[in-house]
Design a protein around this nucleic acid. Structure first.
Lengths: 352, 352
DNA sequence: ATTAGCACTCTTTTTGGTTGAGTGCTAACA
DNA sequence: TGTTAGCACTCAACCAAAAAGAGTGCTAAT
């Protein structure tokens, strides 16, 4: 059987109505709301076909129809195709978003040292905007370069190392050394470090670690310091994940079921579980991705749809933004919002 | 009417059974489980009295009795009085806790620069231990002293300031200055800063700010730098709040009601709302505090009990730990756990 | 090919009856 | 006088049957 234009129109109508109400939709409703001017009987026949093709199902005999994952998928794909042509209109909503980004920016400026906090703010705003739950992963990437290293003594046998990365991400650590070093030696170490280590990426540093040591005559103290630096920098490379608006899921009855909600919030709270998801996403598809129902790799989200967008900042930081909502989420709005955020995220950070 | 010993015993029995089951408890049950050897009829009379006195209520005529906030309060107070005498026995549970703290400690050692992360870990472990939701506030306090300051140039017109506080809390910030400063000048500034600023608390710094400027001949650059330092240090003073195990509330049917759970999780997620609570608690009562039902200052917790304990670390950091659970929480266990944590928290941090 | 009409199905809501837990009260008892 | 047995009463919880409502599939007419 073929999915002709009329069938598609009907499917679309079913989905759109279901997005709105969350209730199974019947043939009569479609007959009324669509502009096809067909009787409910005709629609019924078509719907039977659509069901046979697997795009919609009845929760039970004599109920209206509900879109299946396959149905959503078709719908989402069609939206995307459409979007590709007519680049979406810039409207009032955009103005609003612009303003919100302005707010985030302001907050950001005030505490530039805490990347995580900014992400947190972005996640929150995004959640507020969309009324869905959000998650954002950030990974500064293994080719983030070291820009500046500074060693200083804070106590007799305790040193402080501060490392500034490209993009002004700062890491530091206080550590204990086995023997006292003179101020003069620290000065020397600093000079040495800034000539050899600066400009290296985490990856390069790892490779060159022993070479550097050798070049500088295998001083035991140097080895110690270098290792600490490496450890510290590598930590900065950790994937961080923040979430926002988790309680938004209570806005959708189909997700408010105690068990579903609990599992969902648990996964969102313990960010660990998400990293797998967000990290596998990124590479190839540079655009926006959809995971509808069973398509999501996380079991607790099998009643949801997840839309993700990857981003890359000019300082090499990469990550993924995810929006989690009911399967009947407003896909068009979400796509638009994500595209927007993605475009502007780089501005946001690089301005500083 | 007077609350004689027998009445109290009955009240206690009612509460204990209710803690266990979560269901209203009737006179027959009490007759059976208590060792008073009274008939259910007598118990009934006594219970009627207890109800009149406001310690218990019936959810509806012909239902068993449920403790009121007042009833819980009496019970909790009595436990406390009892505890004061017989200092609780050290048992197997303690061993377990010891081990968990060991774990946290290990994690802590690995990233000493992120106090927040440790708190996070503590909150999580605590939540796991108790099966309730937890929250911890930390405030480094206004009399935390500056230990070390270091200024360095990372770009032509960008400086980095690193400040180490007593207790090795590190803060840093990259900022732009209006004119280029020579390396020599930076060196001079550094020496100056470390003689004048080191050893001052945030409060003292604020007071002495203009005095220091004056003493050093009102250089415009100095003013700029000092302000940045002050701002940065003051930020470190921010109250931070972490939460853990929020989804534990789903373990208690009476809190799993969609609306209650939503409100509760929302308050826990948006930490802001909690600070009022946790901060007002601290000062006078150095021990453990109970907020039963309506006694909690946060509306969304009116169906819960909250137990808080304040702590103070040797580096001046203070804060409050809170445990949020159903009114029928296991108060004894919670008190024990909190006391434990409180005792050990200082060890945990000061060891490093 | 479309549509009106009707019988049929299945959920949801309503109704009414039954059960069981638990109470309050009274009267008997020690 | 305090305790207890017994009984009438209340009310939530459960269940089954009935009614209502929404929607379908199919047939026959257009």
């Amino acid at each position: 059987m073929e999915l002709d234009n009329r069938k598609f129109k009907i499917l679309e109508a079913v989905i759109q109505d279901y997005l709105r109400t969350g209730e199974p939709v019947g043939s009569r409703t479609i007959a009324k709301i669509s502009d096809l001017s067909l009787s409910s009987a005709t629609i019924r026949n078509e719907m039977a076909d659509l069901e046979e093709m697997g795009y919609i199902v009845q929760p039970h005999t004599s109920a209206g129809r509900v879109p299946t994952d396959k149905g959503y998928r078709l719908y989402v794909d069609s939206i995307l195709a459409q979007k590709a042509h007519a680049e979406s209109q810039r409207d009032a909503a955009l103005k609003k978003r612009e303003k919100e980004l302005e707010n985030i920016k302001k907050e950001y400026a005030s505490r530039l040292d805490r990347m995580e906090d900014v992400m947190q703010a972005v996640a929150r705003t995004l959640a507020n905007d969309t009324n869905y739950a959000t998650m954002i992963s950030t990974s500064s990437g293994r080719n983030n370069k070291i820009k500046f290293v500074q060693l200083s003594r804070v106590e007799e046998k305790k040193l402080l190392v501060v490392i500034v990365m490209e993009g002004n991400v700062i890491r530091n650590k206080v550590f204990r050394v086995s023997e006292t070093i003179s101020e003069k030696n620290i000065l020397r170490l600093n000079m040495m470090l800034n000539t050899t280590v600066t400009g290296l990426s985490v990856e390069q540093l790892e490779e060159r670690l022993s070479a550097i040591e050798a070049e500088n005559g295998n001083q035991p103290m140097l080895r110690e310091v270098l290792n600490i630096i490496f450890e510290t920098v590598r930590n900065a490379d950790d994937v961080q994940i923040v979430t926002g608006g988790t309680t938004n899921i209570f806005k959708y009855p189909e997700l408010s079921v105690s068990e579903i909600a609990r599992d969902l919030i648990t996964t969102l709270e313990d960010k660990q579980g998400l990293s797998g998801f967000l990290e596998t996403v990124a590479p190839e598809s540079e655009g926006i991705r959809f995971y509808i129902g069973e398509e999501t790799p996380v079991k607790s989200m099998r009643d949801c749809s997840v839309v993700t967008a990857s981003y890359e900042l000019s300082d090499g930081t990469t990550g993924t933004i995810g929006i989690i909502g009911p399967k009947r989420m407003d896909y068009e709005m979400v796509v638009e919002t994500l595209n927007n955020i993605r475009m502007r995220l780089d501005d946001l950070f690089s301005k500083n």
